[in-house]
Design a protein around this nucleic acid. Sequence first.
DNA 1: TATTGTTATACTCTATAACTATA
DNA 2: TATAGTTATAGAGTATAACAATA
Lengths: 149, 149
Amino acid sequence: MSNDGGVGPQLGARLIYLLKHAFLDLEDLHTENLAPTGVTARELAVLLLLDGREPESQQQAAARLRVDRTTMVSLLDALEGKGLVARQADPRDRRRNVIGLTDTGRRALAQATTASDEAERRFLGELSQTDARHLRDLLRRVTTRLVQH
Amino acid sequence: MSNDGGVGPQLGARLIYLLKHAFLDLEDLHTENLAPTGVTARELAVLLLLDGREPESQQQAAARLRVDRTTMVSLLDALEGKGLVARQADPRDRRRNVIGLTDTGRRALAQATTASDEAERRFLGELSQTDARHLRDLLRRVTTRLVQH
DNA sequence: TATTGTTATACTCTATAACTATA
DNA sequence: TATAGTTATAGAGTATAACAATA
């Protein structure tokens, strides 16, 4: 068969098409694999951000994830509702909330990370370990350059 | 600086995070570069699909792009409104619309493709031609496998 | 006056269900 | 009755503007 998924060589070679559909495919796999953990892929990103880093305000976390602060409010509402993160008023500046993982959050993060690993494995399919690492490296190189918006 | 965009090594190494943000970055560049052409990135995908392939019904086109047929209706409404594509009732089955590019559509496609090429160049940045080709190939390999859902 | 978190609101993208015209 | 296109509607995900508490 042709190697363009039926969309023809022109569209099938466009980087934006390839990236979008690669992301959508991997997102679908995450939806499947994360379902039993009760954590969505977007929430996993927040948990991973909070883990292994000093406690931060909501706006600092939002800036790192490149989402609006109002978006961060709803993400944290959901995570706090599940008892996975805690908001705590910063005593030195009571306008700010310091957010951190709870013990339950740390356990959920471990489970969700395992599920995400499995989704990645399914996504990478027959790619060799070398190719998989290469894909990750190339993506890192093109994204990190643009981060300092 | 660290090579994770400030999100830490855990999140910065997740494939779903890398793919999403790579896509969003490239999408932003397309928004900029395509603006003067009057065609969006999503519309460019439809134009590329219609080009270089026999005329198809709306549902056939929708299936190839993996969008719902109702989504295809609004995409085509916009493109037809700009005079870039034409719907024509199939004389052999008057329920179906055969869709095709107009001459204006072919000109817009040429312009938009050039703009998209430039967006890709900006996105790929300092990557060598070999690395850029490799990235495209790796993405093609992981996506095409999953297409025949 | 400026900033943090919040709420209300709106816009985009997408899909599901119901309608129409043809088959 | 089944199918292609359409319309109405709803649900994510995201952002802008206005507000309350605090600085």
